[in-house]
Design a protein around this nucleic acid. Structure first.
Length: 556
RNA sequence: GCGCCUUUAGCUCAGUUGGAUAGAGCAACGGCCUUCUAAGCCGUGUGUCAGAGGUUCGAAUCCUCUAAGGCGCGCCA
């Protein structure tokens, strides 16, 4: 717990104590003490709405309650300088902010660990994201999912959750057959032979590339061989090629996974049969019309779902149930799936399956990533998977830049539809907020370099009583918010809070920078104190940027 | 038809657990570089929080209904 949290805790205790002393409510009746950070500086450093909350219990007007509370307050105890009653009954606390300087040595010592908290309590969480089919290039939606998923994982880890990142490889089923047939068609075409693409084929440029590469590596040797052998060869080759490409693309997007889980493995190790057997045993399975059904409606689904089709093959759902059963058996207490908006209709049946297996439905959380629309020349770009005319994640990184792309996706709440204006992102890249934040970091690094050249070093033993100017206090307050901002982003699964925080911190720093000079050889003590302050800002900015996979450059 | 998401300034979006006068960026206008990076700072203007009811001390926020847009509703994945 850092000083800020200590002071807040103390303040809350004092508020509660004052309620009891004033005899306004019984201990059990007291609502949770709410401390707000007022938007207006004139409203003090902290405010509480306790008087309003007690209005009904104490049966008195809020302002009267507030007066009685303030009378009981022990000011000396919680760094309180002044208390005022305002508005409908807010109690505003003006703090003696001297204690905030303790943050500086805390941050300097914590270094890259600053921002950590224990709010996650070591809970074992698994986050499954991207999981794009290995049948084409990653497109915009995947990029958004990758950015959000990666940031969420980092935020969760920093907030004290035990996180495992996983990618589910759909390497079984129809789409892989279509991949093999698509590769086959492209192979023949690369040889100059007319060959039609399959009806549900994949028209991406990557598959054309596979066809060409097969010809380069093997010539026409697959033309004459047995059709089944060719199919299997092309399927395996295509899958391997696609997976390698996926991994490379994600790596270059700074997104990594702990586990790559193969759907095929579920077929091979009997986990599908096992899952089916468990459901059957619990009475959630029946046969009808020659198919095998999962009775999901008792668990809130719209209709029951087919697991095994008339032709004996499995629907997508069955291996997916087996997969989630396996996740749960691996001991995860929380499963977070990040899915594209086009899969949201799938949520009720998956949650039904979780319950049917005997787990709490809330064990599974699904975060939906809404669609991304790309605009160019002021017009919405048409994307078609069918013709392969879609902008890929790689195109986007190449055009917009890695940091800007990551920041752009991370900064928006994932449940809103997103317009990505390519012209703006590319041509006016200086206006991109990512540069604003990185610039603050680079500026600090520049000052630190010059300090070093002048023989000054950052030390946590500087005389911090010299830190107290308005802009300095603003910075300290903002620095102190970081661990709570991360914790909240983690608990609420809203990683886009992090870019919000980054922007605020950068803004506070830029403002400070223009108001106060750090390096002043006439005033070595003050300079030392300010160096330790800006070093703290640098550390915090770097840590925050790292949470969203954006670099913190030392020069720009 | 049913389900989920969205609707906040000209544009793109924040808005914390229901709090005080709803905020940023972009765009517009006016200032600030002989002084640590002007990719910056300071200032000015900007609202039917889609609409209507309800809950209450208090609603952009919670509930109900309506409208608009998106996505889904398969023995596809």
């Amino acid at each position: 717990m850092n000083v800020v949290e200590q002071v807040q805790t103390k303040l809350k205790e004092e508020i509660k104590a004052a309620v009891l002393k004033a005899g306004l409510a019984e201990e059990a009746q007291i609502p949770d003490v709410v401390l707000e950070l007022p938007k207006e500086k004139a409203h003090g450093d902290y405010a509480t709405n306790m008087a309003m909350q007690l209005a009904r219990i104490a049966k008195k007007p809020p302002r009267k309650i507030a007066e009685e509370l303030v009378e009981q307050f022990d000011k000396g105890k919680a760094s309180i300088e002044k208390i005022e009653i305002a508005g409908p009954g807010f109690i505003n606390f003006y703090m003696n902010n001297r204690y905030l300087t303790d943050l500086i040595p805390t941050i300097l010592q914590a270094g890259e660990r600053y921002g950590e908290s224990a709010i996650g309590n070591g809970q074992k969480v698994q986050v499954e994201f991207v999981s794009a089919n290995p049948t084409g290039d990653l497109h915009l939606g995947h990029a958004r999912g990758a950015a959000v998923g990666d940031s969420l994982c980092k935020v969760l880890a920093k907030a004290g959750y035990d996180v495992s990142r996983e990618y589910y490889i759909n390497d079984a089923g129809n789409q892989i057959n279509n991949l093999a047939l698509s590769v086959e068609a492209r192979y023949f075409q690369a040889l100059g032979v007319e060959k039609e693409m399959p009806a549900d084929g994949y028209h991406g440029a990557d598959i054309i590339g596979i066809g060409k590469r097969l010809v380069e590596e093997h010539g026409d040797k697959f033309v004459e061989i047995d059709e089944k052998e060719r199919f299997e060869t092309f399927r395996d080759y295509g899958l391997k090629y696609e997976m390698e490409k996926l991994k490379q693309d994600l790596e270059s997007f700074r997104v990594g996974f702990d586990v790559w889980y193969s759907e095929t493995s579920l077929y091979e190790n009997g986990k599908i049969d096992e899952a089916l057997a468990v459901l059957k045993e619990k009475g959630h399975i029946y046969d009808e019309d020659g198919a095998t059904w999962f009775r999901s409606t008792p668990f809130g689904d719209d209709k029951d779902r087919v697991l095994i089709k008339q032709d004996g093959s499995y629907t997508y759902l069955l291996p997916d149930i087996a997969y989630h059963k396996d996740k749960l058996e691996r001991g995860f207490e929380k499963l977070i799936n990040i899915w594209g908006a086009d899969h949201h209709g799938y949520i009720p049946r998956m949650r039904a399956a979780i319950q049917a297996l005997g787990y709490d439905e809330d064990t599974l959380e699904v975060e939906i990533i809404q669609l991304v629309h790309l605009y160019k020349n002021g017009e919405k770009m048409k994307m078609s998977k069918r013709t392969g005319k879609a902008v890929t994640m790689r195109d986007l990184i190449d055009e917009v830049g890695l940091d800007a792309t990551r920041y752009f996706f991370a900064m928006r709440s994932s449940d809103t539809h997103m317009d990505f204006d390519l012209d703006l992102a590319v041509s006016q890249s200086n206006d991109n907020p990512v540069y604003y934040a990185q610039y603050a970091h680079a500026r600090i690094c520049s000052i630190l370099r010059q300090a070093e050249e002048a023989g000054l070093t950052v030390s946590d033993r500087a005389d911090l009583s010299l830190v107290g100017a308005e802009k300095e206090v603003d910075l300290l307050k903002k620095l102190g918010e970081f661990p709570q901002a991360v914790a909240e982003a983690a608990e609420k699964r809203v990683p886009h809070r992090v870019p919000n925080y980054i922007f605020e911190l950068a803004s506070t720093f830029h403002s400070f920078y223009n108001a106060e000079k750090v390096l002043d050889l006439e005033e070595k003590e003050r300079t030392a104190a300010r160096l330790s302050l800006i070093k703290s800002v640098q550390i915090t900015l770097q840590n925050a940027l790292d949470l969203i996979g954006v670099s913190a450059p030392e020069k720009m």
